[in-house]
């Protein structure tokens, strides 16, 4: 048998709040600075999505939108709901909630796509004086959001939800 995770609920909630706070600079700061012929242009996460749509790559824009906006926000919402449901959730939905937990565990790391795009472009595009790309502050803030929310999913113990049901069975 596996040892239960200690103080699961408190740790999970603290990490979720941290992720929410980090999500603000992740969206306000630039994620990437393109320096073309000495003219720097900053772009944010949302700005990058808009740029891709204007370029006509709607499907890739959707990939980034899902990875950087939909996944982190819905993951945070799902984790808050799961924490709330340990005490107050309807016991008959515990099976569905366990599946929901497996989903939050699985989708978390896919949010890192945009951070990897920045890392790749910074490394690849380095034509001195002509075209250079620098990473912006949002890259580290966003990597923080992904990491902290993955830690939150890891510290949540889905067996707490079954304990509540088992308690009512007896």
């Amino acid at each position: 048998m596996h040892v239960r995770k200690a103080n699961s609920m408190e740790r999970t909630l603290a990490l979720l709040v941290t992720a929410c706070v980090l999500y603000i600079p992740a969206n306000l700061l630039p994620i990437m600075i393109t320096d073309q012929l000495g003219q720097p242009t900053e772009s944010t996460i949302i700005g990058g999505v808009v740029l891709l749509i204007n370029m006509g790559s709607v499907s890739i824009a959707m990939v980034i939108f899902f990875a950087s906006v939909m996944i982190p926000l819905s993951k945070l919402a799902m984790m808050f709901y799961l924490c709330w449901s340990v005490r107050n959730g309807p016991p008959e939905t515990v099976r569905q909630r366990t599946v929901l937990y497996r989903v939050t565990e699985f989708i978390g790391k896919w949010s890192m796509i945009d951070v990897f795009v920045v890392a790749i472009l910074v490394a690849l595009i380095n034509l001195t004086n002509l075209l250079v790309i620098h990473p912006g502050g949002a890259a580290i803030a966003f990597a923080g959001v992904v990491m902290v929310s993955m830690l939150a999913a890891e510290s949540f113990d889905p067996r707490l939800m079954w304990d509540q049901r088992d308690g009512k069975d007896e």
């Binding site: 945009d114 472009l121 890891e154």
Partner: peptide, 22 residues
């Protein structure tokens, strides 16, 4: 194993190609 992001990195490569391909 949950912290390995090899497959996520590949999607990143694909997106980068679209961004700079033009």
């Amino acid at each position: 194993q949950n912290w390995s992001m090899v497959e996520v990195f590949f999607i990143g490569v694909l997106v980068s190609l679209v961004k700079i391909g033009h």
